[in-house]
Write a protein that binds this DNA or RNA. Structure first.
Length: 1002
RNA sequence: GGGCCCGUAGCUUAGCCUGGUUAGAGCGCCCGGCUGAUAACCGGGAGGUCCGGGGUUCGAAUCCCCGCGGGCCCA
């Protein structure tokens, strides 16, 4: 089957129209099910890839494409290396971002509305619909139109019961291994949305904000008149204050104000003084922070918040490394329920952890006087009360950066809450050990990952949300100390005394999961913990859940550990971690062997792409504008995979498209002449011409093999950019610019069959090059495969992507010839420079060039002497050993690094005549093109000129000119009727040239 | 506050690990040329305190120290 754009009896490869070609190629792949064949496992060694599932939320942009193109490249590359490839797709479908968008869509403003106005069932249905919507988009613009051959028909989906069972399985494994526990932790909450937020979400919402700024003195017990001075911007947290922290190695001053004395860090005395407007105080005692440790003070709201009366071990001075000496007083108020650091310090010292604030930001009865107030109302009242009690030293305002909810703009509050954890901190050494078996590219990132694992904290796996995997932990209603962890749907059904009648996908979600009534011999009613599981565990268990590994053990054992994964650098603490973490929890091993860590895509100025800046380049837009292959090539070759990528649309067009255009045209050139001469690679075999190869043939044959070797070499280190640059450079410089230029006259010459030597060489080279290019630019490679290779070898495979990379043909690698060419091309460059100095165009032949150099260089040059001569249009290239002289009159020269190059600058009459002939030829060629003549078509030419020189030249070079322009008749007369006529100025003379299709001699 | 990385032409960068020609490219700019595969291409030119300072060395973009500036991650 031929592609429709290539149909026709003779080859006429059109100019490169990327999008049209890609459409046709995609159609061909679809009709022939090529990707399915490509993915078929045939029993060979498997390159198993694990897809980092994109979140089915939001539209894909070029940053996503970069990652997906690396994935596809790695897969295709290993396929042509001879592996079977495992290329299952996957989608991450649950989590807060989906909920947020559904809320927006439904006009929901508070979490309560979800339950009361919309209802959970409807809400979950909407989440599903939204996921479906984005999947459509991702399948088209981030997969199919990019040419990705990930298997989407069998993609894993984290919302499916068969998938999320593995999250349950994992939680149960953690429970069995004693790693699952319940505890308290301080987390950022949005009181309006009534949910905890992740760190990433907090980072999104930092904004300037004006807050209260108050200085409060705390009465030290047993030291009448002595106080600790503290500073805070969240007065409401004083309600849950339990300690004051100092830095043990810092100096503190006891400041005498006459009637009373305050402790302040020495380094901050001046600052605080200025702030409070006090200058007349004296430092009466200097102490190390360590000496303050253990002092007790009276809680400033002891009467207003009665529970503090019972906190016998609270209200004490402790030391902590995090105390800042840059701001505040150097004494930091500690509320273990409202700050992560405070919490840790509290736990270390056994302080009571009180959080009298609810998830909605309203104080409960524990807050005494402040019950029922919001945090901001409470702050005001705290200030009032302290002021009345004369404990408030100063109350002002301060503008600072503070985290806000990125959805609704509400300032976040930190509060302690009951959560479920997995004790990852106990697995640190196992994680590090597992990492030993993992190769990380680029290498520099390894230490980052290692230090993250070495310091890993326990994992809060519970979330107070809806659209997620339900936390599979049940508690006995009658005895809350009894806990039941369910590891699969089967297990759930086993204990169920009644089940809602819904399909399994629903059953495994809220709200249906909570309609299941569970009963066991030791408990008549189990109640599920009201959480969903952190969404990172969803994608984290992909290594086993994606293939339903417990049921497909055979397949799973072939894939695990996965050969390769790749995502952007932010996933170091995300997916890369959640994979290895869950895998270590289950089987004490890393689930992947190689990781490629990518940098991010930025805009062309190096700024992050963001909706806010309006500089996001979406996948859809980029694909429509550039086509997939130019975009792929650009993303692959412009920067190292690990680097940030400054995406400049102009560069795609100029550089990437430009390179592809040259590659395409090299094939066009080859195809045109090969077809014209009925070249047949089975008949005109390279082996038949071995002893007739000219030096440039041997050179290009050597080069393509060297390039192939270097290509695989770079890719063994995932230096994708270098590998691809190498191919582009070879195609543009070696093939197009040098080889084709050299062989063009050989192709035109019909005297011998030498042109078949060229075709055989070129065919060998192009076919190999095509395979090398195929992982980077699959569409264009395929088009050329079908059009070019399949045209000459119809029995070849139906797709380049099913082919295998050729072994490097060691016998054809001739380093000496490559060196020789390097030297010769350098001389060609110098001669071009000399010509431009002399103002003599390449079209003007020159008699002689002389190179004076050492013996070794000369030996090299000798081999490629004709190359210099042809490319520089010099009749004779003379090679002389050092000490010879070429610096005579009539020569222009350049001396460089022991090599002297001289060029004879005299243009004698004979040379001049030849030059004129070439001037004429060139103009006739232009006219042939303007007339749209077929390449092989003959013409009649009539030339009229007032120049004696040109007339002579035409007589002398009559044969030459006729042959070059395929003239049947070349007349020196005024062009008559039926001629296409143009008047030219050549060297100041007027020349009228007439052209017409050759008339058969009648 | 801690860790990692980076700083080379107007822009994007190679070279740095392993010290040694005249620091190499692409884009942009200027001049010239080539073109029967080329929507292309080629040659030349202008443009560099290799972030600053100090050290090691016969010799430093490269190795070491300090500083400045930027990025990423963590707190």
């Amino acid at each position: 089957m031929r592609l429709s754009i290539f149909s026709g009896s003779t080859i006429d490869l059109p100019p490169l129209d990327v999008r049209k070609i890609e459409d046709e190629v995609r159609k061909y792949w679809r009709e022939r099910s090529v990707p399915q064949k490509w993915r078929t496992l045939s029993g060979k060694k498997i390159f198993s890839f694990l897809e980092g599932p994109p979140t089915a939320n939001g539209y894909p942009h070029v940053g996503h494409l970069r990652g997906r193109i690396y994935k596809d490249f790695a897969l295709r590359y290993h396929k042509i290396l001879g592996y079977d490839v495992w290329a299952q797709g996957g989608w991450d479908e649950q989590g807060l971002p989906v909920e947020v968008e559904v809320e927006k869509k439904l006009g929901i403003r508070t979490k309560r509305e979800i339950f009361e106005r919309v209802g959970l069932e409807k809400f979950v249905e909407e989440c599903n619909k939204l996921v479906d919507y984005y999947l459509t988009y991702w399948k088209l613009y981030a997969t199919e139109l990019v040419g990705l051959w990930l298997d989407l028909e069998n993609a894993y989906e984290t919302r499916r019961s068969r998938y999320l069972e593995y999250v349950w399985y994992l939680v149960k494994r953690a429970w069995e291994r004693g790693l699952l526990y319940e505890g308290y932790r301080v987390l950022p909450f949005c009181p309006r949305c009534e949910t905890a937020l992740s760190d990433a979400e907090v980072d999104m919402g930092y904004e300037e904000r004006e807050s209260p700024s108050i200085y409060v003195k705390l009465k030290i017990e047993g030291r009448d008149g002595d106080y600790l001075l503290v500073w805070t911007t969240t007065p409401w947290t004083l309600i849950d204050n339990e300690a004051v922290a100092v830095r043990s190695d810092a100096e503190y001053c006891l400041l005498d104000l006459g009637s009373e004395r305050w402790f302040v860090a020495k380094q901050l005395v001046e600052r605080v003084g200025a702030e409070l407007g006090i200058s007349s105080w004296r430092c009466v005692e200097e102490l190390k922070g360590a000496e303050l440790r253990g002092l007790r003070y009276e809680h400033p709201l002891l009467n207003e918040v009665p529970l503090h009366r019972d906190h016998a071990n609270g209200h004490v001075v402790l030391d902590a490394g995090f105390v800042s000496l840059e701001e505040g007083t150097g004494l930091v108020h500690i509320a273990p329920g409202h700050g992560p650091e405070d919490f840790e310090l509290g736990v270390q010292h056994g302080l009571p952890v009180t959080s009298t604030v609810g998830i909605d930001g309203v104080f409960d009865e524990g807050a005494g006087l402040f019950k029922g107030l919001s945090v901001s109302e409470a702050s005001e009242l705290v200030i009032n009360v302290l002021s009345k009690k004369k404990l408030l030293v100063r109350s002002g305002r301060v503008v600072h950066r503070y985290p806000h909810c990125w959805r609704c703009g509400t300032p976040l509050i930190y509060r302690a809450d009951r959560q479920w954890f997995i004790a990852m901190s106990r697995l640190r050494s196992k994680l590090l050990e597992a990492l030993n078996s993992v190769e990380i590219f680029p290498r520099v990132h390894r230490s980052r990952f290692e230090s993250w694992l070495a310091n890993v904290k326990d994992w809060t796996i519970s979330r107070s949300r809806i659209w997620g995997t339900p936390l599979p932990i049940w508690r006995c209603a009658d005895d809350p100390s009894k806990v039941l962890v369910i590891g699969s749907l089967d297990e759930l059904k086993r204990y169920a005394s009644s089940l809602p009648s819904v399909d399994e996908d629903r059953l495994a979600h809220r709200p249906w999961i909570d309609m299941v009534e569970l009963k066991t011999p030791d408990c008549s009613r189990w109640v599920r913990e009201p959480f969903v599981v952190d969404v990172w565990i969803d994608s984290g268990v992909a290594w086993i859940a994606s293939v339903d590994g417990l049921r497909n053990r055979d397949l799973f054992s072939k894939l695990f550990p996965y050969s390769f994964i790749t995502e952007a650098i932010d996933q170091t603490r995300g997916w890369f971690y959640s994979l290895i973490a869950t895998s270590v929890i289950d089987v004490d091993a890393a689930p992947y062997a190689q990781v490629l860590i990518q940098g991010h895509v930025l805009d062309k100025y190096g700024r992050k792409m963001s909706k806010h800046l309006g500089n996001v380049v979406y996948a859809e837009e980029a694909l429509k504008k550039f086509g997939a292959d130019p975009l792929r090539l650009y993303l692959l070759y412009r920067y190292p995979p690990g680097d940030s990528f400054m995406f400049d649309p102009e560069e795609v067009r100029k550089v990437s498209f430009g390179a592809l255009n040259i590659v395409w045209n090299v094939f066009r050139f080859a195809a045109m002449y090969m077809d014209l001469d009925l070249f047949n690679p089975r008949k005109h075999r390279l082996e038949n011409y071995e002893n007739r190869l000219s030096v440039e043939d041997r050179w290009i044959l050597s080069r393509i093999n060297t390039v192939a070797r270097e290509f695989t070499d770079y890719l063994s280190r995932y230096e994708v950019h270098k590998a691809v640059q190498l191919l582009v450079d070879f195609a543009v410089n070696d093939l197009s610019r040098t080889y084709l230029k050299l062989v063009r006259p050989r192709v035109w010459s019909e005297e011998s069959d030498d042109r078949f030597v060229v075709y055989a060489t070129l065919y060998y080279t192009l076919k190999r090059l095509l395979k090398l290019f195929s992982p980077a630019v699959p569409h264009i490679s395929e088009a050329l495969w079908l059009y070019f290779v399949k045209h000459f070898e119809p029995e070849e495979l139906e797709s380049v992507h099913l082919a295998k990379l050729d072994e490097v043909d060691e016998g054809r690698v001739e380093p000496y010839i490559e060196e020789s060419f390097r030297a010769a091309l350098k001389i060609v460059e110098v001669l071009a420079f000399l010509r431009s100095k002399l103002g003599i165009k390449i079209r003007y032949p020159l008699r002689e060039a002389i190179v004076v150099a050492d013996e070794e260089t000369l030996k090299k040059l000798d081999l490629a002497r004709s190359v210099v001569s042809r490319l520089s249009n010099v009749k004779r290239v003379e090679l002389l050993p050092v000490k010879s002289k070429c610096l005579e009159d009539g020569y222009e020269y350049v001396q460089e690094g022991g090599v002297t190059v001289c060029l004879q600058k005299v243009v004698d009459r004979e040379l001049y005549a030849e030059a004129l002939a070439r001037e004429i030829i060139r103009r006739i060629q232009v006219m042939r093109k303007e007339m749209n003549l077929d390449i092989a078509e003959y013409v009649d030419v009539a030339i009229e000129t007032d120049s004696e020189d040109i007339a002579t030249s035409l007589q002398v070079f009559r044969e030459y000119v006729s042959k070059e322009v395929r003239a049947l008749r070349l007349l020196q007369e005024s062009p008559g009727e039926g001629f296409y006529v143009k008047t030219w100025d050549i060297e100041g003379f007027t020349v009228r040239i007439g052209l017409r299709r050759a008339q058969s001699s009648s």
